[in-house]
Design a protein around this nucleic acid. Structure first.
Lengths: 266, 266
DNA sequence: TCTTTCTTGATTGACTGTGATCGTTTCGCG
DNA sequence: CGCGAAACGATCACAGTCAATCAAGAAAGA
């Protein structure tokens, strides 16, 4: 006999994977009866952890917010090796005593893991990054005000007044949806706005983007390339794109995922 | 025969491995009787090290960091029963759709646990409360901007500009250091200031304070009693203090820790 | 040694979660 | 539009679990 909470965990994890579950599937998955599973779904809906639909339940995240951002755990698995290498190389650009900004993103989250030994001031609008830094590093953490969106773990605010207007950073490390000759691209207007707001607190923008980010996609331009000081990517980046970036005066750092260390810096 | 502490260690380590333990499992694991193990679980829950559920107990930090555990171990052990009763009674004052404020405090943290079924907007400057609400409830969470202080898990900012200036709450629930005829008392000036700032976003102040909070101590007055609408405390509160609060027009709710439900409301 | 206190284990009645069975509602297809 | 199949909510009986109580044993102190 499986415990109630175990079933809940199982249901929620399955829901996270697929976005929707059917009661019949859950019967096979948990071994419980349909009546019990219906009760489970009712309770989980009461506590807001899913939304029931006819035939099963769907993830509450998909319909709850207007954000198009993907769930954090999901994006974490895509190109994890590349992102880790890029994050590691970016972390090498930091020094103790710096004040830096990390926007919400999987690459910056990997970067936060590389900052365990550092002692800096870090401004971030990402809940998981703040969590990582507070729990496992000596860095000071500053947060912007706003609503905490559950599923992407991002703090967003529609207002301009904010305590972070008093924050001055030596560098901002920005993870993005894509980077093209038009500039740094995001897919969601609210997120783009939040990143632009963070960007106003520094003059030095370091874009961290693994080589898959050089495809043109997305539609919200956060800032033009002229605003970018440095791009940290991996050795798989398209050479003509690297050349172009360098031709407009951007430092490009290429991290080798095999060696997990910096190979070249323009 | 196994010693009490050995069992506790065993229970907690098992809880760390899996996210959940059943009483029946523990019988086989420790050799003790179910009655003893129930008592163990009750004690461990009182000290905040796990959460009892029907059939056993689950990890209090499912997917969370050690932050909540470390920051609340100290205050959680003090009057946990009273605080839980007070928190539960205070949660009954909330309705779905409300916008409320919870300041950082152990009583308000217990209260957050009572809000699992609710659907409200909650503004809080407490990291562990935000964590609890995001992970286990359907409530929306709003955070003020500022620095996140590690050990108490509080977000503080020396500046006035903040996105929360756009927040309007129907109620604020305030946990405090003490409450005296002079008003609501805190021990730290920075915390007092943060609470005063939160307080400015609502007209309705509900102070949640177990009966031990009526001793005069501390030195920072957050606000006078005239600002207080309601006090939620337990049946152990000094009668003359209850009378005095009522004489100045404050609603007093007395929660009975034995029955875990509201007995009287003035 | 005797007493006091604490811990333990068994018993009781009440409660909760579970699964099966109803009748009803909803969905999908012709 | 109407029909059948599937899904749903309500209800009931059963099993497992819970809190309270009491008695027995162990540990600590006088």
């Amino acid at each position: 006999m499986m415990h109630e909470r175990e079933r809940w965990q199982l249901i929620l994890s399955r829901l996270k994977e697929r976005g929707i579950v059917r009661v019949a599937d859950l019967v096979g998955l948990t071994g419980a009866s349909v009546a019990t599973l219906r009760r489970d779904l009712a309770k989980l809906e009461d506590s807001g952890q899913l939304r029931r639909v006819h035939g099963g339940a769907e993830s509450v995240a998909s319909g709850q917010t207007a954000l198009t951002a993907t769930s954090f755990d999901a994006s974490q698995t895509i190109n994890a090796e590349l992102k880790r290498a890029v994050a590691c190389a970016a972390a090498d650009l930091c020094e103790d005593g710096d004040s830096i900004i990390l926007n919400a993103g999987s690459t910056t989250w990997f970067m936060a893991q590389c900052l365990r030994g550092h002692r800096m001031q870090v401004l971030t609008n990402s809940w998981p990054i703040a969590q990582e830094l507070i729990a496992h590093s000596a860095n000071r953490v500053v947060l912007p005000g706003g609503e905490l969106y559950r599923e992407p773990g991002i703090i967003l605010s529609p207002f301009d007044e904010d305590a972070i207007q008093h924050f001055a950073a030596s560098k901002m490390f920005m993870s993005c949806y894509a980077i093209t000759p038009l500039g740094v691209i995001e897919s969601d207007p609210l997120i783009a706005r939040a990143e632009a707001k963070l960007l106003s607190r520094t003059e030095n923008l370091v874009v961290v983007a693994d080589s898959s980010k050089f495809e043109a996609r997305g539609n919200m331009v956060v800032c033009p390339l002229s605003r970018v000081s440095t791009v940290v990517t991996d050795t798989g980046a398209p050479p003509q794109m690297v050349d172009h970036l360098r031709s407009v005066g951007i430092d490009v750092v290429l991290a080798d995922p095999k060696q997990m260390k910096v190979l070249s810096a323009a």
